[in-house]
Amino acid sequence: MKKNSGRGSFEGATPSEFNSGYDFGGQWSPSELELARRQARKKKNQRSALIAALSSFLVLGTLVIVIVTSPGWETLRNTFFKWAYGVEVLPKIILGFGTNAMLTVIAGTSVALLGLAIALLRTSRSPALTPFRFLATAYIDIFRGIPMLLVILLVGFGIPALQIKGLTNNVLILGTLAVIITYSAYVAEVIRSGILTVHPSQRAAARSLGLSHFQTLRHVVLPQALKRVTPPLLNDLVALIKDTGLVSILGVTDAVRAAQIQTAKTFNYTPYVMAAIVFLLVTIPLTRWTDRMLRNSLEKQNAQGQA
């Protein structure tokens, strides 16, 4: 076959019944073929939407009917969903949630710093840091392997039991400390995985430009690593917000504890549901936002892969 010299030399290759999308001025308007294709796609999309709506309606409808017609429904509604009571206790729960929020901010900041430090220790190769590297590894192994509730109990009741002068007995501080200890182990591993994904050639390039080990870390490795692990770290932040509720076991008056106090007064569980809703109001938007960030960063990575 002859080589085509450019657009417009396709005579013979074009089926006669096919109206090319270009008129004589070179202006493009969709051909009939393309228009038909669009029409077909639109129809297909409409059908998909209809099926999705129908199936959602069926599944959710059935679920509601099953629950509402169950024999215990009336009792359940009265003990868990007594909205008037819920609204009444809501201010106390929100006040309690202030503690959770404060705990999240303090613990979150400390965890970020401590986690980063542990991750850097674990990835360092300096011989002087060998004992610290070993300690960092042991730390991560231990605190990732113990249920956080146990750490909270051990720190919250164990440290006061030592009766060392100057050490605090404040359960809020001890509870926060326990949360920081546990989460730092997780976050350190996430950050470390990010550091390991930065290709060695980046390090080689930086070192060959004369950057020191620390400068390479600071200007080349960490910026890339932290950007990559931001979505999983936000995921951990959502988990942290919820898990601050666990310190209520030490007697800290957070949202969970506040709900518990109300429940104990009336034997009505609506305060628990209200506490759950307060948590959801914060965590769901954050989760959606995290999802979107993750999707964006994945899309960007894929785009880079194709380039």
Partner: peptide, 28 residues
């Protein structure tokens, strides 16, 4: 010494200009 690699190894989180001035400003 200057070294140029087969796989370019530019720093992807920095602009072209930032790539070029990194070593002069931070090292020299």
């Amino acid at each position: 010494l200057g070294m140029v690699f087969q796989s370019f190894n530019l720093f992807p989180h920095m602009t072209v200009l930032e790539n070029v001035i990194l070593a002069p400003t931070k090292v020299q």
